[in-house]
Design a binder for these strands. Structure first.
Length: 212
DNA sequence: CCCTGATTCGC
DNA sequence: GCGAATCAGG
């Protein structure tokens, strides 16, 4: 696989949204986690909480008997802590490690993170719903929206299961730019939570996309 | 063990 | 430019 503009764009979006490199790699397919990280760095869009970085200056390398790689050149420890220069539109610098900076965002239904005024992220997240939900009966949609009734303006959230007699689609007004209405967007697009806080374990009834 | 991102370096 | 290998922390 090669890094087409389309794939790079998806990488940027997901990376900006906080998706892990693994998730991005799975999503894009054809690339490894390392490939994603490498590409992200090359694109210059790193600067995200690394589990390793915030620690101490790493320098001491353990001498392994069979060390195929030469010792890296000693790097001068940079103690330059730049004062935060609030330049609108400029890339957000690393938040000071000692001063935890909370991000205040409103969270919509389903943990959907709304964009703040400063956040400009027009590109729409693709990502179809990952899990099958019990298909709650949507609000009154008297007329069942069938497959042929789908267009860009109606919510394509499935109600019921394909093959069932009353299988249809939500059919409400779609959230502009999204394939679903506002309500189902809240279900389809989940905020990326810390693993610990992540809701259910994988509820996949069939195997699952375990690749590794 | 699992996961994470960072970095290196041969290609 | 790419990404496997490696490192290092959780």
């Amino acid at each position: 696989m090669s890094w087409t503009d389309e794939r790079i764009e998806r990488l940027k979006n997901m990376w900006a949204k906080g998706a892990t490199a693994s998730q991005i790699a799975d999503e894009l397919g054809g690339v490894s986690r390392n490939a994603v990280i490498g590409k992200a760095h090359r694109l210059g869009l790193e600067q995200r909480p690394s589990p390793v970085k915030p620690g101490e200056e790493k320098e001491a390398k353990k001498p392994v008997a069979a060390a195929p790689k030469p010792a890296p050149k000693p790097e001068a420890p940079k103690a330059a802590e730049e004062a935060p220069a609030p330049i609108p539109g400029a890339a957000r610098p690393n938040p000071p490690r000692s001063a935890p900076e909370m991000q205040f965002r409103s969270i919509g239904p389903g943990g959907f993170i709304r964009q703040g005024p400063g956040d400009q992220q027009p590109p729409i997240p693709p990502a179809p719903p990952r899990r099958l939900v019990p298909a709650k009966p949507s609000p009154e949609v008297a007329d069942k929206t069938g497959l042929l009734d789908l267009n860009d303006r109606v919510c394509k959230w499935p109600i019921g299961h394909p093959g069932e007699p009353d299988f249809h689609f939500c059919g409400q007004n779609a959230n502009p730019g999204f394939p679903y209405c506002v309500e189902h967007c809240g279900v389809a697009y989940q905020a990326q939570l810390p693993r610990r806080d992540r809701r259910p374990p994988p509820p996949l009834p069939f195997g699952g996309p375990r690749v590794r």
